[in-house]
Design a protein around this nucleic acid. Sequence first.
DNA 1: TTGAAAGCGCTAACAG
DNA 2: CTGTTAGCGCTTTCAA
Lengths: 344, 344
Amino acid sequence: VKKRTTIKDVAEYTGVSTATVSYVLNGKVSENISESTINRVMAACKQLNYIPNLSARSLSLSSKRSNLVGIVIPQTEDGEEFMFDNPYYGEFLSRAEYIARKKGYDVLISGRDANRSYLNIATQRGLDGIVIIGIYPDDNISELKYLGLPIVMCDSYGIGSYFNCVGTNDRYAGYMATKYLLDKGHKRVALVSGQEKVDGVNYYRFIGYKDALEEHNIEFDERIVYEGYIDHKYGIEAGKKIIDANLGVTAVFATADILAVGVMKGMQEEGIKIPEEISIIGFDDIYLASICTPSLTTVRQHIGEKGSTVMELLLDAIEDEPTSKRDIIIPVDIVERNSVKEIK
Amino acid sequence: VKKRTTIKDVAEYTGVSTATVSYVLNGKVSENISESTINRVMAACKQLNYIPNLSARSLSLSSKRSNLVGIVIPQTEDGEEFMFDNPYYGEFLSRAEYIARKKGYDVLISGRDANRSYLNIATQRGLDGIVIIGIYPDDNISELKYLGLPIVMCDSYGIGSYFNCVGTNDRYAGYMATKYLLDKGHKRVALVSGQEKVDGVNYYRFIGYKDALEEHNIEFDERIVYEGYIDHKYGIEAGKKIIDANLGVTAVFATADILAVGVMKGMQEEGIKIPEEISIIGFDDIYLASICTPSLTTVRQHIGEKGSTVMELLLDAIEDEPTSKRDIIIPVDIVERNSVKEIK
DNA sequence: TTGAAAGCGCTAACAG
DNA sequence: CTGTTAGCGCTTTCAA
């Protein structure tokens, strides 16, 4: 209920004008301010507990910074309600927020919302830039282009060549994962993934899966690809289905760890031993992969690094305006743990 | 690079004043605006793609809303860098953000930062309210009181009776967990937790642990309480220490699931079978608890509900100003899974 | 070395 | 029913 201290209060207290206060606060060396004034203003700020109002600042002379960036996070695929059930996003956000904070930016988060465009959120809040994770077919990206706001897309496909991107070579990674299984002697490798149509990431991992099969002269069999949702529940379901279907599957590639762990669980509940009877490889390397039993062999995509890279790229784009479009592919590797067995 | 459409543009386009536009936009029924004007203004907004600038709005006549709330999340205890390693926060945030978004509020997140007070972030951004999770001894809470901003504390102890609080009866919950083990016939129950001094939650769970021992006439033994950090790594370490120390422990109560799962892992790596040789009970019921092997018996604290309750309380406090201070305790219960064995 | 004043986009008295 | 206007807190040109 306290009236906040404004620059005006500081000015009056010091006996100078608001302009002068503003100068010293912003370190405008161009304007030559005397030592003594600077000290007096500083003292007054301390004294009065002055905290600048960033909304006001971002308003004054247009094109001023707000020091606010947005991160838009996907919802789970089946609804609007949750976004962080997959710890992937938590790990990502953790690093991204840290980078932003250290450079003096605050972070606004938002789930995707059908009723509110990216443009809307960016404009309303005067965001300096925005990170968009994943991409949906109905996203209106072009209006963002029009806005001229620094944007970094993460794990997004099919958005043309306009925006900065950070991502993974998902096709190659999918290939690697599948090949790893094949090289271990498996011939019947099932795929468990999210909606391939909806999500570029899953689609390309799927293509990579096919690449590997083809390379090994193994016929693609649609009956052993399970396409559902990226969550633990669906993993369990898929695991059970695979067992019930009894189509000779000896290994499965799940396109997300959270899915892979579910598959393991589902199979274990059916009395299957992993990796003795069925091998599983995941994708992401969330910390969960090292925790579960057996620990999960998976494609590590350095989530934390992805988060920090995304934010660094965004802040770069914000601070030195004329950067050319950049693409960064974060390399992946396979972490061998205990969920895959060599056969034959 | 595009100049944004302002209310003035809309006014000129429609041929009315900015005030009129503002009225129709804000549905000021008090001012009687003609149907036709309303329609024309609306049409112009669509046409020009007008998006209001919320910073400007929050500036005008003081005490105006910003429709922005903050959530401050703790760092892990050993450093400043991460905050979401524990999926607890992700689940919490997921629900809280959802509630806020549906009611038209954006969410600013921030890790705690020694260099920036709560007051600072709240004032700079003109937040309408703020959620603070956990509390640290060096937090300066009183200055917030002074600000008169709606605040909801979550899982915070020792902050006096001024703020709204959502929390758990941690002492009772700690008692329950320990008693559960004791009732199963265990006599040597180790405790693994975070820094008790630092974190009220852990402290009260610790006291609850002692309560249960006392009730069962079991002597408290300092040598089997392991006090470290709330993370998986420390859990592993503690698990191994317990085995190495060989002090006759048959069960352990870990004050966070992420810790409990680590303890299991550490012990399993030492060749211990769980629950056959040692029983474990956790705390939180993050989804991980149902995923790990064996699945974890734990104290469920309904994280999602906590997140939504916190946000609802905050928004209530923001929207109908004169609410009295409220305290909500989210009840806990024990989820029985497979990590505890009855002995004797 | 400093200050007056205009303006950023929006809201709300107060007049018409 | 609608417009004029002052002002929110801050930055910055221009003048002193």
